[in-house]
Simulated assay, not measured.
Amino acid sequence: MSNAVWEALAATPLQEVLRRAVVVDDLAEVAPVTVPGARRLAWNDGGGQSAVWYFAEDGRALLLTFDHESELNLYAEEEFALQESFYEGVPAPLVDLVRDRPENYESLNLTDPESGRTIHYAGGAFWYDGTRWHVADGLADHCGREGLDLFGESGFDYCLDVYRLGRDFTPEAVVADRDEDGCYEDEKEKEADLPVVREVFARHGRGR
């Protein structure tokens, strides 16, 4: 499975992935969510795309991505069974982190019409076993059957761009990306943002 961002994620130690997730969560001003047994960190672009990380206490991790314009957006259709199938192959304790949990900005619930149980929607489901990352079997199977670009349709590439995996992750690089995205009205605003971003990096220098 060849994808530059996937390969960069696979090559990045989990502690460094955690550090980047902590910094991005802070920069995105995402409200903390309490999840028993794991640390949840997230990013959203304010327009319907998101990345949500669960770093479990046992050293495993779950990553969910979402692109609201994707063929993998099942929320509008309320397709609970299909959404649940995307998590097939993910260990049950990791799936439990998103099952029957309160909704939040990045993760709304789909509800089983028969049992009333809920699960967080996600276009992409990926997990880390303590050694390496995996694509959820159910997601891979669905994309294979439907002929879908798994990394593109899941929002994986777009949603993980902000973490700069495989690239320098510094305040200067973050500000440069923001400038390229048109986030600043002028050079003065850009210069004013740099010390703010530097302070966030300094606060989380060890990924804590």
Score class of each variant (00 low, 15 high):
Thr118His: 02
Asp100Pro: 10
Glu77Val: 04
Asp149Lys: 04
Tyr163Asn: 04
Asp179Tyr: 10
Ser2Ile: 13
Phe156Ile: 09
Ala176Leu: 13
Glu57Ser: 14
Arg20Glu: 01
Leu64Ile: 07
Val197Pro: 03
Glu16Lys: 02
Asp141Val: 13
Leu194Arg: 08
Ser70Asp: 02
Ile119Asp: 06
Phe80Arg: 06
Tyr163Lys: 06
Leu94Ala: 05
Ala28Pro: 02
Leu97Asp: 02
Thr131Val: 15
Val200Thr: 12
Glu180Cys: 03
Leu9His: 07
Asp186Thr: 10
Glu29Gly: 00
Asp161Met: 11
Gly147Trp: 10
Leu64Pro: 05
Gly152Tyr: 15
Thr111Asp: 00
His120Gly: 10
Leu27Gln: 00
Thr34Asn: 10
Arg39Gly: 02
Asp157Trp: 01
Arg39Leu: 15
His204Ala: 04
Leu165Glu: 02
Ala51Glu: 00
Arg198Gly: 13
Phe156Val: 07
Asn44Ser: 15
Asp25Cys: 02
Leu110Asp: 02
His120Ala: 11
Arg208Val: 11
Glu114Tyr: 12
Gly46Asn: 07
Leu194His: 05
Arg132His: 10
Gly207Ile: 09
Phe66Met: 01
Pro195Glu: 12
Ala11Val: 05
Gly144Asn: 11
Pro102Gly: 06
Asp177Met: 07
Gly152Glu: 14
Phe126Lys: 02
Val90Glu: 07
Gly37Met: 06
Gly124Cys: 07
His68Cys: 12
Ala61Thr: 01
Cys143Leu: 08
Tyr105Asp: 15
Thr65Pro: 06
Glu79Thr: 08
Asp137Lys: 14
Ser2Cys: 00
Gly152His: 13
His142Lys: 06
Arg101His: 11
Val23Glu: 00
Ala31Val: 13
Ser154Arg: 03
Val23Ala: 00
Pro13His: 10
His142Tyr: 15
Glu114Cys: 05
Ser107Gly: 12
Leu18Glu: 14
Leu41Gln: 03
Leu160Ile: 06
Arg20Ile: 01
Thr131His: 15
Asp112Cys: 08
Asn44Thr: 15
Pro36Ser: 08
Val5Asn: 00
Gly46Tyr: 08
Ala202His: 04
Gly207Asn: 09
Glu114Ala: 15
Glu88Val: 08
Arg198Cys: 13
Phe86Ile: 01
Glu88Ala: 13
Trp6Ser: 05
Arg20Asn: 00
Pro36Met: 09
Tyr184Ser: 01
Lys188Glu: 15
Glu189Ser: 13
Gly89Lys: 09
Phe201Ala: 06
Ala136Ile: 07
Glu114Ile: 04
Val174Gly: 03
Arg203Asp: 02
Arg20Thr: 01
Leu160Pro: 03
Thr65Gln: 07
Tyr75Phe: 12
Arg99Asp: 05
Tyr121Ala: 14
Pro93Glu: 01
Arg60His: 03
Glu191His: 11
Ala76Lys: 13
Leu139Thr: 02
Ala81His: 14
Phe151Cys: 07
Ser107Val: 08
Ser115Met: 04
Gln49Tyr: 10
Ala76Tyr: 11
Asp25Tyr: 00
Pro113Ser: 09
Ile119Glu: 07
Val35Tyr: 01
Pro32Lys: 03
Leu148Trp: 11
Pro113Phe: 11
